[in-house]
Simulated scan of single mutants.
Amino acid sequence: MKILEEFWYGNIQPNERDVVPNSRLAKLLKLVAKNEENLAPMLSEDAKGVFEKLKDSQDELSSMNERDSFVLGFRLGARFMLEVMEDMDVPFIDG
Rank of each mutant, 00 (worst) to 15 (best):
K2H: 12
K2M: 06
I3Y: 12
I3R: 10
L4Y: 11
F7P: 00
F7T: 06
F7Q: 04
W8D: 07
Y9I: 01
Y9P: 00
G10I: 03
G10Y: 07
N11I: 00
N11M: 04
Q13A: 04
P14H: 10
N15Q: 08
N15S: 08
R17P: 00
D18V: 03
D18Y: 02
V19S: 01
P21G: 04
P21Q: 03
N22P: 01
S23R: 03
R24H: 07
A26M: 06
A26D: 15
K27E: 10
K27T: 09
K27M: 03
L29F: 09
L31E: 15
A33P: 02
K34C: 07
E36S: 15
E36R: 15
E36T: 10
E37K: 15
N38F: 02
L39E: 11
A40T: 14
P41I: 04
M42P: 00
M42Q: 13
L43H: 13
L43W: 11
L43D: 11
S44I: 06
E45V: 12
D46A: 13
D46V: 14
K48P: 02
E52V: 06
L54G: 02
L54T: 10
K55W: 02
D56N: 14
S57M: 05
S57Y: 06
S57E: 07
Q58K: 07
Q58W: 07
D59Y: 05
L61R: 05
L61F: 11
S62F: 09
E66Q: 06
R67L: 11
D68S: 13
S69M: 05
F70H: 10
L72V: 06
L72C: 01
G73T: 11
F74Q: 09
F74N: 06
R75P: 00
L76V: 07
R79L: 15
R79V: 09
R79F: 14
M81F: 07
M81W: 05
M81P: 00
L82N: 13
E83N: 13
V84S: 12
M85Y: 08
E86L: 06
E86K: 15
E86D: 11
M88S: 13
D89F: 02
V90W: 11
P91Q: 05
F92L: 13
I93N: 09
I93E: 05
G95D: 10
